[in-house]
Amino acid sequence: MTARASPARYDAKLALPLAAFFAVFFLAPLAILVFVSLHTDPSMTALGLTQYAKFLLDPFSLSVLAGTLWVGVEVTALCLLLGFPLAWAYVRAPRWAQVAMIWVILLPLLTSVVVRTFAWIVILGRQGIVNATLLELGVVDGPLRLLYTEGGMVVALAQVQMPLMVLPLITALSRLDPNLLDASAALGAGYWRTFFKVVLPLTIPGIVAGCLLTYAAAITAFITQTLIGGGQLLYMPMYLYQQASTLNNWPFAAAISIIFLVAVLLAVSLFNSLGRLSKGHAQA
């Protein structure tokens, strides 16, 4: 027993450098951020909660927060919808095809997010691929406005964040024992029934992990949000950038960050518990 216990003690100590790193470079700045947010004026002379009141009592600010959280939901749903079949196809594909597929899946991670986003400007522009094709086919009379719209931005974000969804799904799906599917089929279940009763419940951890990663990345994606969303679609990252950089109003910017942080943590833990609930349901 003692032999088994001692590695555990080593493990804890080994994490100390990382813990110290986090304390200095994450917790300390976070504490400063909270402190800054507790000032009533931009020149930081008096303490108070006015910045929080200013945000939480303002319907416009709250709508920016809700809009940002909702964009995350849209992007995550789209990623899951498109990513699951892709991960499924990957797991089923022969070895050589898997090599090609993983390359395609990882490629977005290997290019800079700015480059990926600029590609979407070219795709969604008035003379872009989408509009050119639609005009050619006679589906529309004039070019559609796709760039600088929320729809265009959600699609671009989904592509940019896709690897974060697909990789955990692949891991979860490759752990799935193929015998279970055969067993389900042998017992008379159709494809869909097998999918909902066997595949989905067993891959819940992968789905939860993928969704959390995609969600967090999508709502904080400042570059893609501003390049594809433009200057009049306002989301939380742009809102706090505006306050901090253009207006030098650090306390309000800090309060926005804290509120955003708390809101995201709430959304994430809500999702986590949903995942846990459905897991329980699957086992029942």
Binding site: R126, R145, L147, Y148, T226, L227, G230, G231, Q232, M238
Partner: peptide
Amino acid sequence: LAAVAANPGQ
């Protein structure tokens, strides 16, 4: 208006 860009570069 076709676009409100976030900065002059864009």
